[in-house]
Amino acid sequence: MAGHVVPKKVYFNVFGLLMILTLVTTLVAFADLGPLNTIVALTIAVGKAIVVTLFFMHVRYSSRLTWIVVGAGLFWLAIMIFLTLTDYLTRGWA
């Protein structure tokens, strides 16, 4: 009745994917990719977070209102981090 019942199989698949991505991110950290190391690590982390949010936290099956709240939260976080970086990352340019 209340809430969408997600099949257990979906949870097991998500779990498997999260475990594989954890292994991958740990192994990749030992390879020297230059600045790409951080980008790869963060991309994998964002991917894991999205999967957890969509399936474990049922956002995929939630109302538009929930999507807006989640999106607004991430948007404000992005403002905080990226606007801060526009300062600190460009100080050496002068």
Binding site: D32, N37, K48, V52
Partner: peptide
């Protein structure tokens, strides 16, 4: 759990390739 998903690479995995 998601917070830790970010903490793990940001704290443990930087500088392993040196």
């Amino acid at each position: 759990d998601i917070v830790w998903i970010f903490l793990f690479p940001l704290l443990y995995l930087i500088g392993r390739h040196h």
